[in-house]
Design a protein around this nucleic acid. Structure first.
Lengths: 135, 135
DNA sequence: TCCCAAAACTGGACATAGTCTAGCTCGCAT
DNA sequence: ATGCGAGCTAGACTATGTCCAGTTTTGGGA
């Protein structure tokens, strides 16, 4: 994703695209990696040597609030996911690495039997060992 | 679960049942709450005023290794679950409170299409709002 | 019973992840 | 040019968890 695409995306979601925000956003958006906040901080500093931890956290939280990314606590600590459409997750038990599984690949039955809660979202979390590189 | 049942359970899993370990274990085992480590520390201190944070963590990790409980990173931070049989999870979005859903209540199809990993475990994680108290 | 080694426990230092705040800076409208 | 507010900064602070060196407890053997 080019910088100008990132800028457009931020604007489209009501976020003023400062240089710092663009640097942070382009570390996460438009790819299927699942970086931690510290990873984003490190990558953002490659582009913009002076950027504070607080700015990275502020920006990630802002992107989260505005629906540009999601936060997941599984895997190796909390990671960010720019795939905001519904999908499932596959996690490598050894490394904590996380991959997305398309929504259509799996399905759940029996949800109508859940009576004691109003369901807003659900996903399947699979743990195992990756065989090889991502297809 | 009585103390002597806890003692038996620990022994049966090759854990020497010291007074401290029993105090910690009985805060978690035999009930369906999902306490955090800090909650366990607080509860354990009600029984045993002098018990260190390290002992609580050591014991919880030991119980985890020996298969007496599981650790889950969803919900409100990391919590412990004495239900070690397969089950799914329902999480209240507001409070982070977690409830177990029996394995048989839900089912997943399509797992055979996962080709790039050896699956060791999976579960459904549902988010929503609890309607009322646990049945 | 007494003694010893091993196991368990302790407090505190350290590590990691994340939040908060007070002050500074920069871009923009006037 | 100047004043203002959004954004950014460093660093202090909190929460959670690990590690370690030293001390206490425990169980088993003489």
């Amino acid at each position: 994703m080019t910088d100008s695409e990132v800028v457009e995306l931020l604007r489209a979601h009501g976020i003023r695209p400062s240089a710092h925000r663009v640097a942070v956003a382009s570390c996460v958006l438009g790819n299927d990696t699942h970086p931690s906040a510290e990873t984003v901080l490190r990558k953002a500093r490659e582009r913009l040597p002076v950027i504070s931890r607080a700015t990275v956290y502020n920006t990630l939280n802002l992107l989260n609030e505005k629906g540009l990314l999601r936060q997941h606590p599984f895997g190796a600590g909390t990671v960010f996911d720019s795939n905001v459409s519904r999908h499932h997750h596959l996690i490598d038990e050894e490394t904590g690495e996380m991959r997305d599984i398309p929504w259509e690949k799996l399905s759940v039955s029996g949800l109508e039997s859940i009576k004691d809660a109003e369901i807003t979202d659900y996903m399947i979390v699979i743990r195992g060992r990756f065989k090889k590189r991502r297809a």
